[in-house]
Design a protein around this nucleic acid. Structure first.
Length: 458
DNA sequence: TGTTGGTGTCGGTAGGTTCG
DNA sequence: CGAACCTACCGACACCAACA
């Protein structure tokens, strides 16, 4: 096998989802107990386990879809990760959760092609169909009842005819919901989503839960087999463990097998990362985190030192907290290029003056940006007003000329909008008025931003 | 340009069986 | 007991197309 890990499919994550997922979370109850099937085939077995502390768990598959698989669990991980930031802020999230299918696929390192959506749909069906009977305590409540992993799901489709799914609404089971609001969760490594083998994913969960931040954790093969929920014979499991141990690709932990004892040892970051330039990587990761694209990152990292980049990011974040920044991503790039950092090593007075001047500069830039937007808005309103002041006949001629032009250009998008809504379509109108801008705007403040500012100040 | 759908091919998986 | 092989099937991947 070339690479035991799946490729990183989405190198630069969605700007907004980055804000949601600084870390990925897994709930403790399902990390401890083998709730999910490791099989790649549809699994119709009824699983029953009893742990030493009296926790009993019985998992019954859906008659149609079979047991939920360890890959299906990604949906729960995604939901837990997205809700936990609210829980940490002290909010109690609703039990009904909405998410965007595409964001889920990207966040969990899945393909975004048609099959990715199909797999998600099937996963949701299995999660809703698989029932758990348990007496496990979550958030101090001992729930002794039979319930589905997910109570229900609803797919919000953009087009009912082509079935393209955009948003998904799920209702969480009390069991899982209690786990989240009770913060009975652990942070997991993002690399988890690159693990191919179902057994590896379970191994990682167990290692994370039991080994955690200790140096090592040992367990007997038979107990491990039960905890994994694997049905393969013990010899087969040992063989597989040896393979995983050789490739050593489990995030955060190494596995070693001695006789019938399996030992998980925590990797140190230096060992797992190798000899790389940690400072440079930190800068690249930071820029990626803030949604900066690979080309800009390359330019920034090769042009400026890491102190300048990190200093400016911190500076922009402070400004952002004060509500001074509208487009954080763009402003970070600008700040690094122009170096907005306050200079700390100067004499106090000089420093304070400089800080003031920087602040003034920033506020001036922000103000100018705001005014520029106002000007654009003002101009576009002027075009509309002036257009409707013209004789009806002239207006009609212009409309006809515009339609002739887009027909000649074969502008399919605008033509389609025209056929659908005529001149009521906002995209068409925006294009139409843009065409007339030069002709209708004649005043100095309408064509020159500086003149606009002068007139505004006067 | 980005998102989504469709399809064919290939490689990898779990679990069972067999062999030395 | 460990390793290798077999089977059925799932998922990855690489395309291309449609659409907004």
């Amino acid at each position: 096998m070339a690479n035991p890990l799946l490729p990183i499919r989405h190198k630069q994550q969605n700007f907004f989802s980055c804000d949601v997922f600084d870390t990925y979370k897994d709930d403790l109850a399902s990390m401890e107990h083998p709730v999910f099937s490791l099989s790649t085939k549809t699994d119709f077995r009824v699983l029953e386990y009893e742990s030493n502390n009296g926790d009993r768990i019985k998992i019954t598959p859906s008659y149609v879809d079979g047991l939920a698989t360890i890959h299906d669990k990604d949906v729960l991980l995604y939901i837990a990760s997205s809700l936990i930031s609210n829980v940490n802020k002290g909010d109690i999230p609703a039990q009904n959760v909405r998410f965007v299918a595409y964001d889920f696929l990207v966040s969990t390192n899945r393909q975004t092609g048609g099959k990715g959506y199909q797999i998600l749909r099937e996963a949701l069906a299995r999660l809703v169909g698989t029932r758990i009977e348990t007496n496990i305590v979550t958030n101090g409540t001992r729930v002794i009842e039979n319930f589905a992993i997910l109570e229900s799901f609803k797919i919000v489709e953009k087009h009912p005819d082509n079935g393209r799914m955009i948003g998904i609404e799920v209702k969480l089971s009390d069991w899982f919901y209690n786990s989240i609001i009770g913060k009975e969760i652990l942070t997991i490594d993002k690399e988890y989503f690159r693990l191919r083998k179902p057994t590896e994913r379970r191994l990682y969960e167990l290692a994370r839960k039991h080994c955690g931040k200790q140096k090592s954790w040992s367990i007997g093969l038979e107990t491990l087999r039960n905890k994994l929920g694997a049905t393969a014979p013990i010899v087969k499991l040992k063989y597989n463990l040896n393979r995983i141990s050789e490739s050593n690709h489990l995030p955060g932990y190494t596995i070693s097998i001695l006789g019938n004892i399996v030992t998980f040892t925590r990797k140190t970051s230096e060992v797992s990362q190798g000899k790389m330039d940690s400072k440079n990587n930190e800068v690249i990761e930071l820029l990626q985190y803030h949604g900066i694209g690979p080309i800009i990152i390359k330019e920034l990292v090769s042009s400026y030192d890491s102190d300048r980049i990190i200093g400016n990011i911190n500076y922009v974040l402070e400004q952002d907290k004060l509500g001074n920044i509208k487009n954080k991503k763009a402003y970070i790039v600008k700040a690094i290029r122009d170096d907005f950092r306050p200079i700390l090593s100067q004499h106090d007075i000089a420093q304070s003056e400089k800080e003031d001047s920087i602040k003034k500069e920033v506020s001036k830039k922000i103000n100018l940006d705001k005014q520029n937007k106002e000007w654009v808005k003002f101009c576009s309103q002027r075009v509309k007003d002036k257009f409707y002041e013209q004789p009806k006949k002239w207006q009609e001629e212009k409309r006809q000329a515009f339609i002739d032009k887009i027909t000649l250009d074969n502008n399919k998008l605008i033509l389609k909008s025209y056929k659908k809504n005529g001149f009521k379509n906002p995209i068409l109108l925006a294009n139409f008025f843009t065409e007339l801008k030069d002709e209708l705007l004649t005043e100095l403040e309408e064509i020159d931003f500086d003149k606009y500012l002068k007139k505004r100040q006067a």
